[in-house]
Design a protein around this nucleic acid. Structure first.
Length: 193
DNA sequence: CCAACGATGGTCT
DNA sequence: GACCATCGTTGGC
């Protein structure tokens, strides 16, 4: 079942944790969300929305449950879910998935057969799922991209976020304990218990 | 295993 | 013109 509007209106940090274990579904492709990061409007210089509304970050100031897709480093896309109160300027970055369905298509797009490397990073999962700028600001309530509920109740580890220059000390990254489909920093001490 | 580095283009000052 | 919420490759151990 597709999750409803109320789910996305949760406070951003709660939503970032609640998304772990849920399914990201796009056509025949499906994966379990294993890693997320929260981006807050207030006191978070690492958040795109922290300096106010711009053309790029406009979806973050739209309704919760919409997606914010942007180009990073000129080559990759990042998928975010707008969260909290409508217009609040907050979102959750989806950083990694555990592939469930459509693995052969993901392998073709990612040019690797190794399942662990299909969706274990924000740029990798958008490549595997074929999510790009044209999907920016679509609603997860309407499709074609959706979040489905699950009965998974993961144990959650909290760490600082990855790859930031501003706000990197904030502990706003969350991932499923023991899951091997998290981002490539898997091998660093940051992920060890 | 792991640190360093270059590719690459939209956005904002 | 500077800055990036990244990734794959390379080369050292």
């Amino acid at each position: 079942m597709v999750l409803g509007k109320r789910f996305y209106k949760q406070p951003t940090i709660e939503l970032a944790k609640a998304l772990l274990g849920k399914y990201l579904v796009f056509g025949k492709l499906k994966g379990i969300i294993t890693e997320t990061e929260a981006y807050l409007y207030k006191n978070d210089p690492g958040c795109h929305a922290s300096k106010g509304l711009t053309k790029r970050n406009a979806p973050m100031f739209g309704p919760a449950g919409n997606i914010y897709v942007y180009l990073i480093y000129g080559m990759y896309h990042c998928l975010n879910i707008v969260s909290g109160k409508d217009g609040e300027g907050e979102a959750v970055l989806i950083r990694a998935l555990e592939p469930v369905d459509g693995i052969s298509l993901m392998q073709k797009r990612r040019k690797t057969k190794i399942t662990e490397n299909l969706c274990n990073g924000p740029g990798k999962l958008t490549q595997a799922f074929g999510i790009a700028k044209k999907h920016n600001n679509l609603s997860l309530l309407d499709g074609p991209i959706n979040i489905h509920n699950s009965k998974i109740k993961p144990e959650i580890i909290t760490t600082p976020r990855i790859g930031l220059t501003a706000g990197k000390e904030l502990e706003l990254r969350f991932y499923i304990k023991g899951n091997k489909f998290v981002s490539r920093y898997n091998s660093l001490s940051i992920n060890r218990i």
